[in-house]
Write a protein that binds this DNA or RNA. Structure first.
Length: 508
RNA sequence: CGGGGAGUAGCGCAGCCUGGUAGCGCAUCUGCUUUGGGAGCAGAGGGUCGCAAGUUCGAAUCUUGUCUCCCCGACCA
């Protein structure tokens, strides 16, 4: 046996989370082969391992949307400026991060191509589609019989962010945006809350990321919204990440865009609308919730491959038998059902060394990695590594037992990953800070992997002016959690009487 | 957009101050050896030094401009 002279690094990802959290994040996205920079300012390339996860997320979410009565549509990428400026708050909120199309052709001038053919009306590249969908709804909706109108689109959007971060905040990203119109405020509010809950279920049950459900304070609302609901997740450095939002838009957009219907009583009324969305930002949340110093860990329900089989080939005489064993094992695994779908098992046939294959899948986060060599074939066994318990090393099982138990095993990994993330979130949420002095002391530290602040749950008066005093700390009100204790207390920021609980944190 | 840092081979970097025509480690390819685990030895391929202009006999190196990325901030449904 040849022991490597250069000792292998202790971790597959360098630097570790504790050494340099921001750099670790970059390295893990690359090491797991999820996404990379594109050379186009702020825009990313989503690679197969990242896109494969996104496709599974889409599939699951899309099913949930359809089960609740929504239908998919597609609306234009370009929005006429005149549409966009109809809702004042909406303009205010997005104006500073807009990509604008002003020309429709190129001409050669001094050997270089320059824009030519100026448009009479500039087009903006959609940052979100309330206006263009609202204009369509105004045509579609005439009567209360046309309501509710429930549409969703899977699309890309562009927001010219000042400081892009791979997956978390890119100039272009993929998302879904649901847009609905209803007869009454009650119906629309119920819809906004229904989708809020669907996001919670999806993110917690499928992505194994625990979240806090809450409502955004007024100053954090979506431009044009009456109420904004969000799910807030805690990243491994204690920062918050808004993982999904659902908005009750009232009649703001229906009045601006004339979305009117004749009511049951015969009156002409404006509809009440909602919008809700999640994006590829969730892939960033996945990294910063489940990543470790060896790479990504993907919860089984969205893992492109549940089980990766790495053949260990010593010499040509073993090769055929080992490969035949691997392939039949894969077929047996594919016949098993996990979470309502066939187990996704793959034999890694690439012509690279066994250890390299193993570490590649460790970094990509496959939940179960099997190494199969001649001895396993002989003994009818499998050698198992669990990605979420790498430190426990390998274990061996009889092939038949492993196959029949694989669905349970995946379910158990799914649960363990959620439980672990929930324990982290709870351990780093404090609820016993009662005054400003203790609050400032808590947030005096920087956010880091194993130290620094997380979420503070405390009473807040709701006074917008109190928030301005948080700017120096870089802290924001993340949400007003739905579960309120209703007890009287004093505002942690100002000392004024307050009954409302709020979550305070630094955020991405 | 403000402050700081950086762009040299796929990745990580040295060279720049003191201009002379590009180097190291890993990765890749080939051969031999090894084989229950991120192997060893030998050899090879790969870069108009982010881009543009200027100074110069000569620029990775000096000057100016420009683009991009990273970190901190501002901004961020």
């Amino acid at each position: 046996m040849n022991a490597p002279k250069n000792a292998a690094p202790k971790t597959a990802i360098s630097p570790t989370r504790a050494e340099n959290y921001a750099e670790w994040y970059q390295q893990i996205v690359r090491g797991a082969d999820m996404a990379e920079l594109s050379g186009v300012r702020g825009c990313m390339i989503i690679k197969p391992n990242g896109y494969g996860i996104w496709e599974l997320m889409q599939r699951d979410l899309d099913r949930r949307f359809k089960e609740t009565g929504h239908e998919n549509c597609y609306f234009p990428l370009f929005i006429p400026l005149s549409y966009f400026q109809k809702e004042a708050d909406h303009v205010e909120g997005f104006a500073k991060e807009m990509a604008v199309v002003t020309h429709h052709r190129l001409k050669a001038k001094d050997g270089v191509l320059v824009p030519d053919g100026e448009l009479e009306e500039p087009l903006i590249v959609r940052p979100t589609s309330e206006t263009v969908i609202g204009v369509a709804m105004a045509k579609w909706i005439k009567s209360y019989r046309d309501l509710p109108c429930l549409v969703n689109q899977w699309a890309n959007v562009v927001r010219w962010e000042m400081r892009p971060r791979l997956l978390l905040r890119t100039a272009e990203f993929l998302w879904q945006e649901g847009h609905t119109a209803h007869e009454t405020m009650e119906d629309a509010m119920a819809e906004a809350k229904r989708m809020h809950e669907i996001y919670r279920q999806f993110v917690e049950e499928v992505m194994a990321i625990p979240v806090v459900m809450g409502e955004k304070p007024a100053h954090e609302r979506f431009p044009g919204a009456v109420n904004s609901f969000s799910i807030e997740a805690m990243m491994l450095d204690g920062r918050a990440l808004q993982a999904g939002t659902s908005h009750y838009l009232g009649q703001n957009f229906s009045k601006a865009l004339n979305i009117q219907f004749q009511s049951r009583e015969g009156n002409l009324e404006n509809v009440h609308t909602t919008s809700w969305g999640v994006s590829t930002r969730l892939l960033g949340a996945l990294v910063m919730t489940h990543g470790d110093d060896n790479g990504l860990r993907v919860p089984p329900r969205i893992a492109p491959w549940h089980v990766v089989i790495v053949p260990v080939l010593r010499n040509d005489s073993d090769k055929d038998a080992v490969l035949a064993y691997c392939e039949s094992l894969r077929n047996e695994l594919n016949a098993q059902i996990f979470a309502g779908a066939p187990v996704r098992a793959k034999v890694d046939m690439r012509e690279i060394s066994g250890p390299d294959k193993k570490w590649d899948w460790v970094k990509k986060g496959a939940p179960l990695i099997l190494e199969i060599g001649p001895r396993d074939v002989e003994g009818g066994k499998v050698c198992i590594m669990r990605r979420n318990a790498l430190e426990k090393g390998k274990s061996f099982a009889l092939r038949a037992e492993f196959v029949s138990g694989v669905a349970d095993e995946l379910a158990s990994i799914q649960k363990d990953m959620f439980d672990q993330a929930l324990a982290f979130q709870k351990a780093r949420t404090v609820a016993d800070i009662k005054d400003r002095k203790a609050f400032d002391a808590y947030f005096a530290a920087e956010n880091a992997f194993e130290s620094g602040p997380g979420f503070v749950r405390a009473k807040w008066s709701g006074d917008p002016k109190s928030v301005e005093t948080l700017e120096a700390l870089g802290v924001t009100v993340r949400c007003i959690p739905l579960d309120q204790d209703g007890k009287e207390g004093t505002c942690v920021l100002t000392g004024a009487p307050a009954t409302m609980d709020a979550i305070f944190a630094r955020a991405y």
